[in-house]
Design a protein around this nucleic acid. Sequence first.
DNA 1: CTATAAAGTAGACACTGTCTACTTCGCATG
DNA 2: CATGCGAAGTAGACAGTGTCTACTTTATAG
Lengths: 194, 194
Amino acid sequence: MPRHPDLRATVLTVAAEIVATEGPDALSLREVARRAGVSHQAPYRHFDSREAVLATLATEGFAGLADALEAAEQEDLDAHAVDSARAYVGFALASPGHYRVMFRPDMVRFDGHPMLYAQSARAWEALRALAVRLADDGRIVGDEETAMAWLWSLVHGLASLLLDGPLPARGSTRSPEALVASVAKAIARPSAGP
Amino acid sequence: MPRHPDLRATVLTVAAEIVATEGPDALSLREVARRAGVSHQAPYRHFDSREAVLATLATEGFAGLADALEAAEQEDLDAHAVDSARAYVGFALASPGHYRVMFRPDMVRFDGHPMLYAQSARAWEALRALAVRLADDGRIVGDEETAMAWLWSLVHGLASLLLDGPLPARGSTRSPEALVASVAKAIARPSAGP
DNA sequence: CTATAAAGTAGACACTGTCTACTTCGCATG
DNA sequence: CATGCGAAGTAGACAGTGTCTACTTTATAG
């Protein structure tokens, strides 16, 4: 029986903290165990390996991202686009410990983690739905696949740069929120209209 | 005197190979030394630490990226935009061992590596020059800073997704080159005009 | 020829992931 | 109530890592 109230959840929380502050390669299961106040082997009762912890983090991350994107869906296309962009980048900035692990195939392989694949598919579908609407509405040059690549590149690129890029440090006088707002507007209305 | 003809260069080459195939956190200086046929301490004659190797890789990476972007500069704005996008993503795909390390502040800190900062500034300036032209030409809604964020997000996002994202795996029936071409066109002409 | 400084080697230390074997303890069953 | 079973946690060991220190080799400058 657990001396520790839900060690599994604690492991994930502490791991996310470490990844958020020191990066994924700095994650040490022994350090996690130490912070959780258990022996260095206790986490292995709940996770097969270090990689399994990271895979679970990635799965949680994709689930949260999918939730946020689905919550942004709405009839009005402008609002759908702007809210989705905000939701995507907002999620990444709010959960860096999860987001940093989600696009790291060298650390987390999709094969062998069906849950990870399923949740990432949810997020992918939500984004794709928006891309299709934008393409159908003629706001993006090109077909659905181009629209999807364009949209995903834009939000993922902005999230990555804000999180790990020299963008914030380099003379950017602007707050991340303002940048996200500008880019979100550009997503909704790529045409240089009034 | 070196028994090994330019061990420093060999270390960088082997390190780039490992990062390209197994990811940055799988880089082991001892493995590098092994593949170079020297003792496990030999690389430390040329690099202060593991992080210094990664920082050098990142510096080389930014230098190569800057070269590629500067070579794409030209009078015609359409061609400048399309060639820059191709150059950026092309560099990332051709040098994954370098590119993967360039946006990893948890592994490579800019402070204390002036060369790294200088080369990244070169690449940044080249990209910024294009952003300014696009903004001045009215092809991007918003000011220069928005244009820069938009442009960089797009090319960095696409490069990241092609390199490490589920984009290629997921039902994408299209070749990376075709995707890059589509997105490059969208960069040159964001407006959905003919 | 020899001194010197750079290049490379060897060994040690603390740290890591993970294997194996042990202990503890709540609870269902007799 | 006893018992024993399975899950949770502990402890020790092993190979591998980054990096410190101390040693050896060697090409060349004087």
